[in-house]
């Protein structure tokens, strides 16, 4: 992943990973259209509970993440079996990173920006009770750290690939390929951070250090979702629930 003499510091792989990024506006439009259609199917008086609405948003965002993965360089070379194993392993991390990325751009401590463009005051979240509000706070803390680092889109694109191509996933048919992608992306991110942010000591390390935090928070979110599902509070028959069960089966 070495940069060309014409453009030192910009590994072509980094540009290629960014080019795989979805069109945010398109994704937003699709999800808003889906929610409007869903709402119009309900009676005016039948207002969905906030949490189930969040679940529908997360479900629709997950669809867009699967679409993104399918179109990604390297990923499309894998067999469907391996694609499924990688996505089963990291779907909640990608969902969380998508949320955190949005908060980094949003740049406000007192409110959350949803994928629909709606803003939710954090005080309403704290009304939801400890598990959810403490997870949201942890998410806000992660977003704050990445904001302080002024993480850019290229770095975010690399982090997404590092999460997706996890060579530790079990039963991979082509584990070597996944490992080689992980190494290439690591090398490209390192080179990019060294050249683009020379003044920032160990920027690469500071970015990579966020990944276990994303993993741990996403695991907590999965447990919470599982609990809510057992309470019958999560709309069923959707991708979210399928992915939740896939990991636990």
């Amino acid at each position: 992943p070495h940069s060309s003499p014409m453009n030192p510091g910009m590994p072509p792989l980094v540009l290629e990973l960014v080019s795989c990024d979805p069109d945010e506006e398109q994704v937003r439009g699709k999800i808003c259209a889906y929610l409007h259609q869903e709402q119009s199917g309900r009676g005016k008086l039948d207002k969905p509970r906030p949490f189930s609405l969040l679940c529908v948003m997360a479900d629709q965002t997950l669809f867009s993440i699967v679409e993104w993965a399918r179109s990604c360089v390297f990923f499309k070379e894998l067999k469907v079996g391996d694609q499924m194993r990688l996505l089963h392993n990291c779907w909640s991390e990608l969902l969380l990173l998508d949320h955190i990325c949005r908060q980094v751009h949003h740049g406000r401590d007192s409110s959350l920006l949803l994928i629909t463009g709606q803003e939710v005051d954090l005080s309403t979240v704290s009304d939801a009770g400890p598990p959810l509000s403490s997870m949201v706070q942890r998410g806000q803390e992660l977003a704050r750290r990445l904001q302080l680092l002024q993480v850019d889109r290229r770095e975010m694109a690399c982090l997404k690939f590092l999460i997706l191509f996890n060579p530790n996933v079990k039963l991979l048919e082509n584990q070597q390929f996944v490992e080689s992608v992980q190494e290439q992306v690591n090398g490209a991110l390192l080179e990019y951070t060294l050249y683009s942010y020379p003044q920032c000591l160990d920027r690469f390390g500071q970015l990579i250090l966020r990944l276990p935090e994303v993993r741990s928070l996403s695991a907590q979110a999965e447990d919470y979702l599982c609990y809510k599902h057992l309470c019958g509070e999560v709309p069923c028959n959707n991708l979210l629930i399928e992915m939740l069960h896939a990991k636990r089966s």
Binding site: V66, Q83, H88, L239, E242, S249
Partner: peptide, 20 residues
Amino acid sequence: KEGKKPQALLHYLLNKDDSK
């Protein structure tokens, strides 16, 4: 529902043919 393969939706999404 029991008969449905547990990861049917993801499998469908990854396999679907967009050209149609």
